[in-house]
Write a protein that binds this DNA or RNA. Structure first.
Length: 829
RNA sequence: GCCCCCGUAGUCCAAUGGCAGAGACAACCGACUUAAAAUCGGUCCAGUGUGGGUUCGAGUCCCACCGGGGGUACCA
């Protein structure tokens, strides 16, 4: 075994490499973009981490993926922005602070330091000079600034309404943070509470959030798009006004319903309003008032989980009044029930039990009439108890009779529009984004409440509204009101408008507000004149490749898309979508299950790094499966990866030609493999098939080994060319080993400065290829033919094959399909 | 219930509609070794969940079903 001059190491040792290279990278500053316009720019971003403890296996996977892209693009000659930061506001820091009688910032920044050190060890090729933390005043100043811009545009507003309340964390939750009726964070069943809260009017952007997904198609995972589509929940239908007749001294009142089935108007047999909506109180007659109040109390006591169960018997209470069907004048009894939601549509429905299962269940519970108006050919719902919602001809519907469902929907809309009692409309499932939180460790909402002037925005030049430093430990424990309310010095302030005594808003913003714009801040992280420098953002954004977990498919990604659209409307940016392409890495499992403390199946990242080395762990993560698939740590072999890395590294020990050797005279067969591998690897990387790139790289290493041991030998120029290609491709996955290999080959200063190898097309073409000859789709012969064989020639050769003639047994040839030079299929009669 | 994704060797995974196997793990055999480890070389292993269809040709496209995973769920 020969050793290159200047290389002292003889055995592969990951710990030696890990000790050596970080200082070199830092010294060379290789990961910061030049940003001088000399090269095309690319922006690759990993979803920034929350600083809870040290990095774990999930981070290791996600960041390995993003780093492959960043390093590949750099080698390809792009000017790459690959920044890193922390989503450092949030509840865990606050809970830790309470436990340790400390300030949340202590825990937060200590964890950030730990994670930053781990990221550096993990060799993430990030531009550390752009590092940001959302809990820094220099950052949240601009979160507040953006809130005020939203406020000015009427996109941030306060309203009193029942909200999701976590009785353990003692804070409100956005709809998106309620999972199966329980708090996303702690699992406690969520209850409803009526509070005056801040909202962002994301519903105003529902159409654009939906329509602009067209430009994401093919670049975002289909399932993420599907989830967003469902979440936005666009539904076409009609608003129809019913007049609730005057009764028991209560005046008549028009009530609008939303329906997707105006064709079934004649099938409406009763009318339901959401029991918890104010409308129910408006409508109820004095005689029924007590019954309604009892019912409201009863449903308030139910948890969300119970309330949402579709198994549950339908309940409700008659309100003592009747609504008039605008199409046929029929009087429908008005009920209040909890199966109608106050905050969807208008909070009132026309009930068509024959064609809606929920209405039918209710009708059967209270003995209300059922009238089918669409003949679907199925059994009468009144008898079967199964509502029919399919296609069919209209019956029992006056002038709609005989029409198809689709025709009847259009005609019914025309009728109510002509009568002035309704119109075609679109309804969305999406609700406004509840953003205020009664917790401490977040960006304070920059509003002052003044007895004289009402809500007064804090002037821009007084931003940031800083969190007080003196609240710590017990003072932060949840009380149902924001801990900030207890900081008298902080709360009491002068009204920016009239100068009189006033109070600060004591809520803080949902941390999803912080993360809805951080990708923009990275373009100019130290900018002090605005959230980001317009020109810098125009240069770098949108993000070309975003990498992160599918758990953010709705929340973070929808909010960020919303922010981007608002910022565009403000004229600060000129694109509609923040993330051009999205890669969702899978989870890291162990033994088929997500790692968790309760299962005791956790795998500690730092232990794995100590045992196998950074490169082996990174390589294992990438090689295990396609990026979007889960990796089961029990199924993979970091020791196998380490073995491969050592094998690749040893090539460098054997290369016996000098740096700068011309490749031209090298072994042709090996050179073909090299250039094929480089070309394939580029295609595979562009397609995101990182795991396959590693397989190709293994082939190249194997071929090179063979060339050294049993082929042209270690001094052949092709062996050097191959080993250099190995080092370059390997640098995407295993930066330490690649650097060491590159250095062994006599190169300086870093493989990061290398270029992706150019492909010599002439080496890709083969002189002869194996053509497959099929008879009736079955392989019967193989022919060595010139690569440029003509279709006619190949057909002749195939038909002349003794194997073919034997198989045909004299049968007529009906057809011959020729795909020169690879395949001939002969179809006998 | 509705929507989305996935079923290929013992395992993880490859395969522009064209020879089912690129790569790896595990297992086994051999070389090296006093022995073991490491290393090197080799061997073994499925006809692609099931049933139809389209096609000269289907793992790949279409339909239905089965199984697994995920999302969502009284959204009118």
């Amino acid at each position: 075994m020969s050793t290159q001059p200047g290389t002292e190491q003889h055995e592969y040792s990951f710990s030696t490499m890990e000790a050596k290279w970080p200082a070199v990278w830092e010294e060379l500053d290789v990961f910061a973009p030049a940003d001088d316009g000399s090269r095309e720019r690319r922006y690759v971003l990993d979803m920034f981490p929350y600083p809870s403890g040290d990095l774990h296996m999930g981070h290791a996977e996600a960041f390995a993926m993003g780093d492959v892209v960043a390093r590949y693009w750099r080698l390809k000659g792009y000017d790459v922005l690959h920044p890193i930061g922390w989503d450092s506001f949030g509840l865990p820091a606050e809970n830790a602070a309470i436990k340790r009688n400390a300030h949340p910032s202590e825990w937060t920044y200590a964890n950030i330091d730990t994670q930053a050190a781990s990221f550096k060890r993990y060799a993430i090729s990030a531009d550390w000079s752009r590092r940001l933390h959302t809990s820094d005043p220099g950052y949240y100043r601009w979160t507040q600034w953006l809130f005020l811009r939203f406020y000015e545009r009427g996109l941030a507003y306060r309203k009193n309404s029942p909200v999701n309340w976590c009785p353990k964390d003692l804070t409100v939750l956005a709809n998106e943070q309620v999972v199966n009726g329980a708090c996303e964070r702690c699992g406690t069943p969520v209850t409803k509470k009526s509070l005056n809260q801040w909202y962002f009017k994301i519903t105003e952007y529902a159409d654009r959030l939906l329509d602009d997904m067209d430009e994401l198609k093919g670049h975002w995972p289909e399932r993420v798009l599907a989830m967003q589509r469902n979440w936005i929940g666009r539904s076409e239908g009609a608003h129809v006004r019913f007049t609730v007749e005057e009764a028991a001294g209560r005046p008549a009142k028009d009530v609008t319903v939303f329906t997707t089935r105006p064709d079934t108007l004649h099938g409406a047999t009763f009318f339901v309003v959401a029991a918890d909506a104010h409308l129910a109180l408006d409508l109820v007659t004095p005689e029924q008032h007590d019954a309604l109040m009892d019912y409201r109390e009863k449903i308030k006591a139910l948890s969300d989980i119970e309330r949402q169960s579709t198994e549950r018997e339908k309940t409700g209470v008659f309100l003592g009044r009747y609504a008039v069907n605008p199409l046929n004048g029929e009087k429908l009894p008005v009920w209040a029930a909890d199966y109608v939601l106050a905050d969807y549509g208008t909070g009132a429905i026309m009930a068509v039990p024959a064609h809606d299962q929920r209405d039918l269940d209710f009708a059967q519970a209270f003995d209300l009439p059922v009238r089918a108006v669409v003949d679907t050919g199925e059994e009468d719902p009144a008898v079967s108890g199964v509502a029919t919602s399919g296609e069919g001809k209209l019956i029992n519907s006056g002038e709609l009779d005989g029409l198809s469902k689709t025709e009847a929907i259009a005609r019914a809309i025309e009728l109510v529009e002509a009568a002035g009692t309704g119109e075609k409309t679109v309804n969305f499932r999406l609700r406004d984004w509840l953003l205020s939180r009664q917790r401490f460790w977040g960006a304070p909402i920059p509003i002052v409440h003044c007895d004289e002037c009402g809500e007064v925005p804090v002037p821009d030049d007084q931003l940031p509204v800083r969190l007080p430093d003196d609240l710590r430990g017990e003072a932060l424990s949840p009380k149902g009101t924001s801990p900030l309310a207890a900081a008298a010095d902080w709360v009491n302030t002068d009204c920016p408008n009239c100068g009189k005594a006033a109070r600060r808003d004591t809520d803080t913003m949902d941390t999803f507000v912080d993360s809805s714009w951080y990708y923009l801040r990275f373009a100019s992280p130290d900018y002090t004149e605005g959230p980001f420098e317009k020109e810098a953002a125009a240069r770098w954004l949108p993000v070309d490749q975003y990498v992160g977990g599918v758990e953010h498919a709705i929340l973070h990604l929808l909010y960020s898309r919303f922010f981007t659209k608002v910022l565009k409307d403000m004229g600060l940016i000129d694109f509609d979508e923040p993330f051009r392409a999205l890669l969702n890495q899978g989870q890291v499992l162990n033994g088929g299950k997500a790692m968790s403390k309760s299962l005791g199946n956790g795998v500690d990242l730092s232990e794995q790094l100590d045992k196998f080395g950074v490169d082996a762990v990174r390589l294992t993560m990438i090689f295990a499966s396609p990026p979007e698939d889960d990796v089961d740590w029990a199924d993979v072999s970091p020791s196998g990866s380490a073995k491969f890395l050592a094998r690749a590294w040893r090539l460098g020990q054997d290369v016996a030609s000098a740096p700068g050797t011309e490749y031209d005279g090298g072994d042709r067969a090996l050179r073909s493999v090299i250039h094929r591998t480089v070309a394939d690897a580029a295609d595979l990387l562009d397609a995101g098939k990182f795991n396959v790139v590693i397989a190709k790289l293994m082939e190249l290493v194997n071929a090179t080994r063979k060339a050294i041991d049993a082929g042209p030998g270690a001094a052949d120029p092709a062996v050097r060319e191959a080993t250099e290609a190995v080092a370059i491709i390997l640098s995407l996955f295993a930066p330490y080993t690649a650097e060491d290999l590159w250095a062994q080959l006599g190169h300086e200063p870093s493989v990061v400065k290398a270029a992706w190898p150019a492909v010599d097309e002439s080496l890709l073409v083969q002189e002869t290829v194996t053509a497959v000859v099929q008879v009736a789709g079955k392989v019967r012969d193989r022919l060595e033919v010139p690569a440029d064989v003509s279709e006619d020639e190949l057909e002749k050769l195939a038909l002349a094959s003794p194997q073919v003639i034997r198989t045909l047994e004299g049968r007529e040839v009906r057809k011959v399909i020729v795909r020169a030079p690879k395949l001939v299929n002969i179809v006998p009669a």
